[in-house]
Write a protein that binds this DNA or RNA. Structure first.
Lengths: 147, 147
DNA sequence: CCTTGAGTTCAAGTGCACTTTAACTTGCAC
DNA sequence: GTGCAAGTTAAAGTGCACTTGAACTCAAGG
């Protein structure tokens, strides 16, 4: 066994990432991660896939859809460990989005208290709910939350 | 017509809140909002319901589930405009949660850049992904994201 | 060898948050 | 009083992110 070429089984990747095997297969189906196959058709994962999986989970935690994550990961080299430049590109792309989400959360936190005194959370005047009618204009549904 | 008792139709509430009528009926079915009925069985909403709807949408934007929102709203007086104390209670309840979500987002934003240099996003060492193994221990699935 | 736990595929099922459809009724404007 | 947009219900459908089940194969220890 050549050192450094230790591939992970799906069970091992699952254990190390905390993601169910079924979810890992699902991610692969959707093109978010990749595997090589053994002679007996079993999946084997390179260690770099662990990094991808962790990235997927982190992004999900903050509400990014799998499709958006797939797009982002598609810009990383398909099977090789990403370089500094790869991560920098991805980071820059998402920064505005993350900043916006942070701002929204902070507004909610700060305004929940603030509104208590100001009679807020009435649509006409609430700066939180109605920052330029932008939110309402985007239509209903959780589908569009990060659009 | 007594002044101050202007009830809203579902269409009006929809227009003012930016939430589809079907969603409003759905919220009512789930006990998040309430209506009174006309002789002909049509819904009429008090103005205070507008405040509830806006609250629902804001909370959804930051990833709170309808069930959690329902619980929160259940602590507000069912049909009456909430008092300062009502909002304060609700705000205090959610504060820790919101703070945690903000912290996670900020960590992702700051660490995405940081990890570029530190070889991070490998599960062993990444403080973002693995703050005390807490996230992984919570199991997979977007269902539990805010549990 | 043989057992057994881990892995495989494909199809169907689940939970959430709604939307759509169909068939029907109300209520305001003229 | 009549027309028609806006309202009503119940049931089925949709999109996302998975999970579960059935039926089967692989791989490593005793």
């Amino acid at each position: 066994m050549k050192p450094g070429v230790t591939l992970l089984t799906i069970g091992e990747l699952s254990a190390r990432s905390g993601v169910a095997p079924s979810a890992l297969r699902f991610y692969e189906e959707r093109g978010l991660i990749h595997s090589v196959r053994t002679g007996g058709n079993q999946r084997r994962y390179e260690r770099s896939e662990l990094r991808r999986v962790s990235f997927i989970r982190i992004a999900q935690q903050v509400g990014v859809s799998l499709e958006r994550i797939r797009e982002a990961l598609a810009e990383l080299p398909e099977r090789r460990t990403p370089t500094k430049a790869d991560w920098t590109r991805l980071s820059a792309r998402w920064r505005a989005d993350l900043d916006a989400r942070i701002a929204l959360l902070e507004r909610l936190r700060d305004t929940l208290d603030g509104c208590i005194g100001c009679g807020c959370l009435s649509l006409q005047s609430c700066a939180l709910y109605n920052p330029g009618d932008q939110l309402a204009a985007q239509g209903p549904g959780p589908r569009k939350l990060l659009a």
